[in-house]
Amino acid sequence: MGSDDHRLLQREGVLFFGNVIAGLSHELSNVFNIINEMAGLQQDIVGGAQPGSTDTADRLFELAGRIKAQVERGETYNRYLHKLAHSVDDTGIAFDLGETLELVSSLAARPARLARVELVMQPPEQPVTLEGDPFAFVLMIYGSIGAVLSAADSERRVEVGAAAHDQAVRITITSADSLPADVIDESAAALRIGRAAWGMVHTLDRRPDAHDSVILDLPVVAPGPHATADDEGQEDPDVT
């Protein structure tokens, strides 16, 4: 990866982190707000806001279950944050394609929900191990999903699928709506990172019946060294 691409990865990476962390922070706040309100409801019930009630124990039991579900929801968001934070640990490691796609689609779930688009992830049929920079991979897929989400029209459904063949992987992001020819421009930075870090090649598959797709083809093992220093051998002051 050249120095320009490396700088692009860093800049896009910071934007991506900011965007995703703001979303997850909002979701975690929602969880805390709900737990706070349910605790208030429990206090109201125990405090006798409804005198003479015979089903207090049942109500408290039911509320405890709802609180537990919210705690599990919060733990899930925390798990995403943890995985995301560790995706920058190494630029050349082996990682599971299905798990990483699941992480990306989970991170994209909030923007999809806000855009009122149903986002569906179809994991690969067989486990596939990729080797390369997981963060560049996440950025490439997230950016591409974002571009397809923003082009959603009346059908508002986007499906992400993956299939491996020999030493290559094809990731398909299909919209139930037609995609404009310039949809790829929306994710230009993500695709450039994908080309530089993964040797990815993208195509836009447009069909007469809508269900257009952005297709990303990449090797199972990313080409070239996965070092963080640039190709001209300049030392990166941010890497120790």
Binding site: N30, N33, I34, G40, L41, D44, A49, Q50
Partner: peptide, 16 residues
């Protein structure tokens, strides 16, 4: 848009 929040608040209002 958080269904559980809405339901808890509405219940608390009803209790009052």
């Amino acid at each position: 848009d958080e269904e559980e929040l809405v339901s808890a608040v509405v219940e608390r209002l009803e209790l009052r």
